[in-house]
Design a binder for these strands. Structure first.
Ligand SMILES: NC(=O)c1ccc[n+]([C@@H]2O[C@H](COP(=O)([O-])OP(=O)(O)OC[C@H]3O[C@@H](n4cnc5c(N)ncnc54)[C@H](O)[C@@H]3O)[C@@H](O)[C@H]2O)c1
Ligand SMILES: NC(=O)c1ccc[n+]([C@@H]2O[C@H](COP(=O)([O-])OP(=O)(O)OC[C@H]3O[C@@H](n4cnc5c(N)ncnc54)[C@H](O)[C@@H]3O)[C@@H](O)[C@H]2O)c1
Lengths: 217, 217
DNA sequence: ATAACAATGTTATTTTATTAACAATTATTT
DNA sequence: AAATAATTGTTAATAAAATAACATTGTTAT
């Protein structure tokens, strides 16, 4: 019996790396490269070639011995694993500095992921569009999310409004949340949540910089 | 012989969590709380109480049995570990949407980390200040970084200028780099590098959203 | 006083992630 | 034609991280 491949058990870290590989591969492709070796991918990503080969093994992709991996094929396979066929729609709540930076960053990128709506409470922002993304009143959140079938929400409101916004998004039926405010939020277990705070990353860099200078002494 | 505690061997993940604990603790403190239990910290951070206790064990902090951990003491200890006494100065290169979002986010936060300079090539931006952070010409980078003793750089220029900017920062003597462009950069091994790309995070969320909806079928 | 409870701190175990080792393969060089 | 070199794919080993188990200790209730 033919077993349907689900890629269900890929390690979390592998998923993240596949996304990065794809980005690097697309760049290589645009430069006219057709094949690539594991050690080339590894160098770009600052990891080891073994890691790359192991990840590709896990997704069942084989290269050729002297040419390496076919870039187009590999991109397609990664797309197959990561992307949803129908595409996934994303909404961003809080069209401030960060919200705008993200929309700006995303627009023009192909991908099966697209930011299709922004929400804000500031009347000056409602009704505008930013890089093709319309800004709606936050009171319309539920309606528009359901109507458009938006599945993922990005939270970039001021920290004090984060949890309320999260609740509204959950109530609207969102399936995944990306919280960029420094305030950790709570969601039901059926909603996939990622939180990211820059300060943590920066403090980590600072810690290792400090450590290294202490070691030198 | 008294051994000087260096916290040299703390797991990477513990470092990141300590930064997060501190943020949560500061919030609790500001609300008038004086003590906190491991399970309370755990709930805020969406992790397990054991994880919290283990991290605190690693840094050698003990709570009291029925009151939990003294918030002030713990904050101070974490500060001791993560922060540098003298403070660390940070520069941001590329005062666009993202650069501004980050400066805006940072300003007002206490911390031993402060963004003290921004750099850009756009004449319209040079000479302005943003939330107290002056924007200098990118050609002044080396001078100002050395003069001010800036140790960490954040890169938020357009992707095509990322590696050149990284080189300039390294040449100026920077010790740690945080790269927000989607273009991976190369630095000498003595420079601590973190790279972050939102697209990876978003694609990860999308993948798990997709997986869960496939599982339901 | 004693039992039950709710915490902490720590060691042991399990899981996840990375790295190493190496056989197999094919192009290139001698 | 044989030796060499470079690369993949995979299994084995190691390392890092998370979780479980549990002894210990005060506190509260009985
Ligand atoms: N994670 C990071 O690295 C990072 C970096 C920068 C900023 N931040 C955080 O992101 C958030 C936004 O930062 P910013 O600089 O863009 O702030 P901002 O003030 O520029 O933007 C916030 C926007 O949210 C809108 N808003 C407020 N309440 C709302 C609500 N209930 N519903 C919808 N919209 C609402 C405001 O009108 C404003 O447009 C802050 O919480 C900040 O701390 C995080
Ligand atoms: N990692 C993420 O999550 C994320 C999110 C958004 C944007 N980005 C990336 O961050 C970068 C900046 O995004 P943005 O929206 O702020 O772009 P932006 O165009 O608004 O800002 C870029 C700024 O860099 C300046 N600049 C250009 N070349 C420079 C140089 N050589 N030296 C100094 N300054 C220079 C420009 O004048 C401009 O002010 C882009 O690479 C973008 O892809 C990353």
């Amino acid at each position: 019996m033919e077993e349907k491949e689900t890629f269900n058990h890929l390690p979390h870290k592998t998923i993240a790396r596949l996304s990065q590989y794809r980005r690097a591969l697309l760049l290589c492709l645009s430069r006219g490269k057709s094949h690539i070796f594991s050690h080339e991918i590894a160098t770009i990503q600052h990891i080891t070639p073994v890691q790359v080969r192991r990840d590709l093994m896990l997704i069942g992709y084989s290269g050729t011995l002297r040419k390496g991996y076919n870039i187009k094929e590999l991109i397609n396979l990664i797309a197959n694993i990561i992307d949803s066929e129908e595409g996934i729609k994303v909404a961003i709540v809080g069209m401030g500095n960060l919200g705008r930076a993200l929309i700006n960053y995303f627009s023009g990128k192909r991908h099966k992921l697209s930011i299709v709506a922004g929400f804000d409470t500031n009347p000056d922002k409602i009704g505008n569009t930013m890089n093709g993304v319309p800004c709606y009143s936050a009171s319309m959140m539920k309606d528009i999310i359901q109507q458009e079938g938006i599945q993922i929400g990005i939270i970039t409101v001021p920290a004090e409004n984060a949890s309320q916004t999260a609740n509204e998004l959950v109530a609207a039926g969102i399936k995944g949340l990306l919280n960029y405010t420094p305030k950790p939020i709570d969601v039901p277990e059926y909603v996939y949540l990622e939180e990211y705070d820059m300060i943590t990353t920066l403090e980590k860099v600072a810690f290792y910089v400090k450590m290294r200078s202490l070691e030198e002494e």
